[in-house]
């Protein structure tokens, strides 16, 4: 599906504003829990976010939550985007949050950047996910991330 971007410039401006204060661009790592090397969803999300001015870290496919947490710490990202082809997020979210908590790095935001069934979204928020990509609306997604980071960092 073609991504819907209507207020690209507006988002870019707020990303620039964030980068000015933080000293670097918002950095998101897209974790690929699927089992396909060329996951089209991830490619799309990565390019759209990079176009909005994010620094996007790509991960090898088929990672475990332990690898993903370690990579997120090594790269010192602001946000981890979870992407799973089958849409099974619950256990990943719980495990990843536990893993981050064990390093005392709960300030790293967890977002869902892959396809998710609408009736699961509420549950994700309850588990501790900060933003969910709904209806491929990337502006809302990016704005959600930025406002989340605003409270965490400043």
């Amino acid at each position: 599906m073609k991504a819907k971007i209507m207020f690209l410039q507006e988002v870019r401006n707020s990303v620039d504003d964030f980068a000015e204060r933080e000293g670097r661009r918002p950095r998101i790592m897209l974790a690929n829990f699927g089992f396909a090397e060329n996951n089209h969803d991830i490619t799309e999300t990565a390019t759209v976010l990079a176009d909005m001015g994010f620094d996007v870290d790509m991960e090898p496919w088929g990672r475990t939550y332990i690898d993903v947490a370690q990579d997120a710490l090594d790269n010192d990202v602001h946000v981890i985007g979870i992407n799973s082809i089958k849409g099974e997020y619950k256990s990943l979210v719980v495990k990843l949050l536990e893993e981050l908590a064990s390093y005392d790095r709960e300030d790293i935001m967890l977002v869902i950047s892959g396809h998710i069934e609408a009736h699961n979204i509420k549950e994700m928020y309850e588990l501790g996910v900060s933003v969910v990509l709904v209806d491929n609306c990337y502006e809302k997604f990016a704005k959600g991330i930025l406002s989340g980071l605003e409270t965490i960092l400043f």
Binding site: L49, A50, D51, G53, V56, D57, M58, P60
Partner: peptide
């Protein structure tokens, strides 16, 4: 856009 895509780690699967 000043954004970037950092893909070097995808090639360093076992090393990472």
């Amino acid at each position: 856009t000043k954004g970037s895509i950092l893909g070097d780690k995808t090639r360093m699967e076992t090393l990472s």
